[in-house]
Design a protein around this nucleic acid. Structure first.
Length: 344
DNA sequence: CAATCGTGGAA
DNA sequence: TTTCCAAGATT
């Protein structure tokens, strides 16, 4: 039986994915952008975002020369917006300290914001064909099954163990093909549910398959119930129908994106309104409740449209035509609420 | 170490 | 309908 890596590389020639948008004219820059977009994100979701992003920011220089709002507008709807903030900050660092060239060492890559050990490994292996290990969700699942690693995935000890295995399996040649192959195997064969082990190139010595543990590995920790957060949104509307959005703090949820005035108490929201606008709204219209699931809590928002006689300028705020918000970085529930307004 | 940080699709 | 989780990093 040939080596694990040899079998994977061979399997990739006929079964691997080779036409993903970031695989065409592959460059370290494209590998970097795609790896960030694909963090905790499925290929089908990231694909249209990647195409748009590369078209707008074809290289590090273009990215470094723009502004954060512009970057966020191209990330709107993709989630985990710290990734966009970090990508922009990293681009400026690469531009100023690395002459616009994506670094090719593990230490330099990891020192950049948003790039951890796995993403750095992917950039090295796929972008520079340098021997480096990755450990994403796919690889964790493949290795946990193949080597029968029964510890909970969330435990640092398990992660450490899997890193060692991942590094030990690396081939000396065709590291780029191998890296792509093990990800493809996890994505298409060694899937979390209904894996097709009969098509697996390393099924001969897979301990999970031999011992009937494929369905139970990797071991996942039981998740806690998500709390529900209830908020009210206030949406000032000018006489022409424009809406007032305000920029959220750079840190935290939806950092740097445009959102509505928010409070957990409706009274506090009205107080906020009076202190800021020094006027009474003509009408207060309750819109449909908005439900949204985050990774760590559930949000229920009740939006109120507050019609104003005039629209003045306010700090960190912008009046926008609700039919023309494409250029703004908007969280998905905010975008949906605006659509609710335009179609009502 | 545990919590935080989005979203859409699959089951 | 609800739960789970997908090419993780940061604090």
């Amino acid at each position: 039986m040939s080596k694990f890596s040899t079998r994977l590389i061979r399997w990739h020639k006929t079964n691997g994915r080779k036409d993903l948008p970031w695989q065409k004219k592959r460059t370290p820059y494209k590998v970097w952008i795609s790896e960030i977009m694909l963090q905790q994100t499925q290929v089908s979701t990231a694909t249209p975002y990647f195409k748009r992003f590369i078209k707008e920011f074809p290289n590090v220089k273009k990215l470094a020369e723009t502004n954060l709002d512009h970057v966020l507008s191209h990330w709107s709807g993709l989630g985990y917006y710290a990734r966009a903030r970090n990508i922009y900050e990293a681009a400026k660092i690469i531009s100023s300290k690395h002459k616009g060239k994506v670094p090719n060492s593990l230490e330099e890559l990891i020192s950049l914001p948003g790039i951890g050990k796995s993403t750095a490994g992917a950039i090295l292996a796929l972008g520079y064909k340098k021997k480096a290990a990755i450990l994403d969700g796919n690889v964790k699942r493949v290795l946990a099954r193949h080597r029968k690693i029964e510890g909970e995935l969330s435990l640092p000890s398990t992660t450490k163990n899997l890193w060692q295995i991942s590094e030990k399996l690396l081939p000396n040649d065709q590291i780029d093909v191998y890296t792509q192959s093990i990800m493809d195997l996890g994505a298409t064969v060694c899937t979390k549910s209904n894996p097709t082990c009969e098509h697996c190139p390393v099924n001969q010595d897979c301990l999970a398959l031999t011992q009937g543990l494929v369905e139970t590995l990797p071991t996942k920790s039981k998740s806690k119930p998500k709390p529900i957060k209830k908020v009210f949104w206030l949406i000032p509307q000018g006489p022409e129908g424009d809406l007032l959005l305000e920029k959220r703090n750079k840190k935290g949820l939806w950092g740097g994106l445009w959102s509505f005035i928010e409070s957990e108490e409706k009274e506090a929201l009205e107080d906020e309104f009076h202190s800021r606008f020094k006027t009474k709204y003509l009408n207060l219209k309750r819109l449909n409740k908005v439900k949204h699931n985050f990774s760590h809590y559930k949000l229920e928002a009740i939006p109120y449209l507050a019609e104003l006689k005039t629209q003045k300028k306010y700090k960190n705020s912008v009046w926008v035509n609700p039919k023309n918000v494409e250029s703004l970085g908007l969280p998905t529930p905010i975008k949906r609420t605006i659509e609710q307004i335009t179609t009502s």
